[in-house]
C-alpha cells in the first residue's frame, strides 16, 4: 500500500512539478465558530462529491477565462451540517474575508480545487479557491466579489 502511494506520489510529481497532493491530505477544514461540526475536506472526499464546473475569470490572475471545478460551498456546509449567516474564509497567509451566507444560496459559489482540469497546488494559490460564476453572470465581475474570491483557503468557519 505504501508502495502504491509512493508510486502515485511519483506519478503526481511527474505531472505536477508544483508539488504533490496526496488523496488523504487535508486540503481545508470546515467548522462552526466554536469548532463544532468540523469537517476535513480531502481529495478523496472531493472525488466522491458532486463537482461543479463552470467558466470564470480568476481575480488577480492572468485575466483569461478558465474552467474551474469543485464542490458547491453550500453542499460542503450541508455535508458538515453547518448553518449560519456568514462564512469566514481563512487563507494560508492569514488573509480573512467574511462572505454572507446569501452568496452561497443565491449563486453557485464553489470551492474550486481544479483549474482547467488540473488540481490547484499551494503554488497555484490552492488548495482551494472560492470562485463565483462571473462569466455566466456579469454582475458578479465586481470588486466586492473579487475580494470575496479568497484563494489558498485553509479554513471555512460558519458563524
Amino acid at each position: 500500500m505504501k508502495r502504491a502511494f509512493a508510486l502515485l506520489a511519483v506519478a503526481v510529481f511527474a505531472i505536477h512539478s508544483a508539488g504533490a497532493v496526496l488523496a488523504d491530505d487535508v486540503l481545508f477544514r470546515i467548522h462552526g465558530k466554536d469548532g463544532s461540526h468540523a469537517l476535513d475536506v480531502t481529495a478523496s472526499m472531493l472525488g466522491e462529491m458532486d463537482n461543479h464546473r463552470f467558466k470564470a475569470v480568476l481575480p488577480g490572475g492572468t485575466g483569461t477565462v478558465q474552467e474551474v471545478s469543485g464542490p458547491l460551498v453550500r453542499d460542503l456546509l450541508k455535508a458538515a451540517g453547518l448553518e449560519g449567516s456568514k462564512v469566514v474564509a481563512k487563507a494560508l497567509d492569514g488573509y480573512e474575508m467574511d462572505i454572507p451566507m446569501s452568496d452561497m444560496t443565491d449563486f453557485d459559489v464553489i470551492a474550486a480545487t481544479r483549474v482547467d482540469g488540473k488540481p490547484l497546488s499551494v503554488r497555484d494559490r490552492g488548495p482551494a479557491w472560492i470562485v463565483y460564476p462571473n462569466v455566466d453572470r456579469a454582475d458578479l465581475k465586481d470588486a466586492l466579489y473579487e475580494a470575496r474570491s479568497v484563494w489558498q483557503v485553509k479554513e471555512l468557519i460558519v458563524e
Binding site: 508544483a18 494560508l92 499551494v122 503554488r123 494559490r125 484563494w151 489558498q152
Partner: peptide, 9 residues
C-alpha cells in the same frame, strides 16, 4: 509554496 504563489501572482 506560499512565497512561490506570490511571485507567480
Amino acid at each position: 509554496d506560499i512565497l512561490y504563489s506570490r511571485i507567480n501572482m
